[in-house]
Design a protein around this nucleic acid. Structure first.
Lengths: 131, 131
DNA sequence: CTGGATCCTGGGTGATACTG
DNA sequence: CAGTATCACCCAGGATCCAG
């Protein structure tokens, strides 16, 4: 199945938010899409290097799910050593505004420090500037 | 902890996409935020009615997590029968562009039919489905 | 280099029953 | 009405070893 968690009986039609989220479900899909949007085409280990915390197993899994969903294409070069390129499909690329929105909000409202995440209230930022 | 799945050791700072996604993690957060954005303030059962597939347990849980994250406020009225209002905080409301992007993409690229989800290629819509 | 196969576990999620 | 308490299941996700 292409949906890892979604039981396909979630809710009635009419919740595109849920639908979209279901394609981003999984711990690494968002990051993968982000890097693919940034760099165009990436090989397996190039992706790994950009997402240090991911394991091969999970990277493979999430890539396959994204591929099955039609969001990215996987190109195998029959050479030795093996080479596999990953790139977004047109649909995958159409997620750009979504990823951009996610990224923007994260930059605005979350502080990442040593791997920890802290929320930042806009008022605090404004207040510190104004007051 | 406020993050259900995120191990906080995911990746180095620099991935706001991941950060944002971590706040939307969980099966119902997106939908909850969406409805709260739509309707302003909602009571517990009003939310339930808008998300038929959710159980009380999960609705409660996700609401608490969103509250702990600071995205929504929970107002208890000491009356009988009980009444609890949920509304977005300013930060919660700041997620509007994100939810909007998610929703827009879903409307453009996903068809919900009888609870099932089908991807729709923009090209296929433009050009008649020939395959 | 790019995976596949296997084992394992944490906790997310559901179902149900109960309560002020 | 708005939850809490419990039990049980399933599978996402990590670790490790193996393979072409």
């Amino acid at each position: 199945m292409s949906k890892p968690r979604a039981k396909l009986t979630d809710n009635f039609p009419g919740c595109p938010v849920e639908s979209t989220l279901s394609f981003l479900d999984g711990k690494w899909k968002g990051v993968i899409l982000y890097h693919l949007l940034q760099d165009g085409t990436l090989r397996f280990n190039e992706l790994r290097r950009r997402i240090p915390a991911v394991t091969q197993r999970m990277l493979t899994k999430q890539l396959r799910e994204l591929e099955e969903a039609g969001l990215l294409s996987r190109t195998v070069f029959p050479v030795v050593p093996p080479r596999v390129d990953y790139a977004l499909t047109p649909i995958g690329r159409s997620l750009e505004p979504v990823i951009a929105a996610l990224r923007l909000w994260g930059k605005e409202h979350v502080i990442c420090e040593n791997g920890r995440k802290y929320m930042v209230m806009p008022e605090e930022k404004a207040a510190s500037k104004a007051a």
